[in-house]
């Protein structure tokens, strides 16, 4: 129908049609779902045709079938609990410390540029290479894993909070002062609401990186937690179980991301 209208306007419709992605009037969400479905289906077909009783790969159906069994295994549950505990603690500390120090550095004009440069440099380092030092100082257990999670997660929070705090409108601060607000009021009514959307968006990145840090530590030292279990499963020739655990971890990470994304959207509704 619309094609008829387009043709009337002359040369323009050609160009317009050319830039439309996907064609065939498909919505982006639909496209994504279909792509995913195609990949899963292809994988299942390949698994059925060529990978019967493979020691390294499993099809989607086998993986899904293995999830309940895997999750009811007490050893797996314990590993999940350990990792979840480490992750939550590391994420909480990265969030609190990152927001506090980030706001402080962002509000201090002279400290801003030097500290940002330093943090960006530190952020770019491959921390994995430094992990032996963490173990040396903190041992193999809980604390080295948590600290490794923190050092992965804290950088985006620090940098995001710093940038957001620097962007706080000074006129708004002056205005609140004129209305009789002191430091605490300014913090509560101006600084916090201004930086919140940015902070939550940095938390999405931080959550992923914190989990990465914790899992990396567990994979490397293999003492407790999901990482260690993945490590041992990877050499146990039980692919469905391995993939089921991986799928669980991925689902948890996606859930955290979705929740934070929800808050981020809610908190930035006032933005144009």
């Amino acid at each position: 129908m619309s094609a008829v209208t387009f043709r009337r306007v002359g040369g323009e419709p050609q160009a317009r049609r050319a830039v439309r992605p996907g064609g065939a009037g498909m919505s982006p969400v639909m496209l994504r779902v279909l792509t995913l479905a195609a990949v899963v289906l292809g994988w299942e077909v390949l698994a059925r045709l060529y990978l019967q009783d493979s020691l390294f790969l499993a099809g989607p159906v086998a993986i899904v079938q293995a999830i309940p069994g895997t999750l009811s295994d007490p050893a797996v549950r314990e590993a999940l609990a350990i990792t979840a505990g480490e992750f939550l603690l590391a994420f909480a500390i990265a969030t609190i410390a990152g927001v506090l120090f980030g706001a402080l550095l962002g509000a201090t004009r002279r400290a801003f540029a030097p500290s940002r440069n330093l943090l960006q440099m530190a952020f770019s380092l491959p921390q994995v290479a430094l992990y032996p030092l963490f173990v040396l100082w903190l041992g193999f257990g809980f604390s080295s894993k948590v600290v490794f999670g923190i050092t992965h997660g804290i950088f985006p929070v620090l940098l995001g909070t710093m940038a957001a705090t620097k962007m706080v409108d000074p006129n708004l601060v002056t205005s609140v002062r004129a209305m009789g607000g002191g430091r605490r009021t300014i913090l509560r009514k101006v600084v916090l609401p201004s930086i919140l959307p940015e902070v939550v968006s940095s938390l999405r990145v931080a959550a992923a990186l914190t989990l990465l840090g914790v899992l990396l530590a567990e994979l490397m030292v293999s003492v407790g937690g999901v990482g260690a279990m993945l490590h041992s499963l990877s050499s146990s020739f039980a692919p469905a179980r391995l993939y089921a655990l991986i799928a669980t971890v991925c689902a948890a990470a996606i859930a955290v991301n979705l929740v934070l994304g929800f808050f981020e959207r809610r908190l930035s509704r006032w933005r144009p």
């Binding site: 409108d169 006129n171 708004l172 002056t174 205005s175 002062r177 004129a178 209305m179 009789g180 009514k189 101006v190 609401p193 201004s194 006032w270 933005r271």
Partner: peptide
């Protein structure tokens, strides 16, 4: 210091809270 009971301001850029 600020005298909010007696003096009110209007600033050039309005200084409105964008989230309110």
């Amino acid at each position: 210091g600020p005298v909010p009971d007696q003096v009110a301001y209007v600033f050039q850029d309005f200084a409105l809270f964008p989230w309110r």
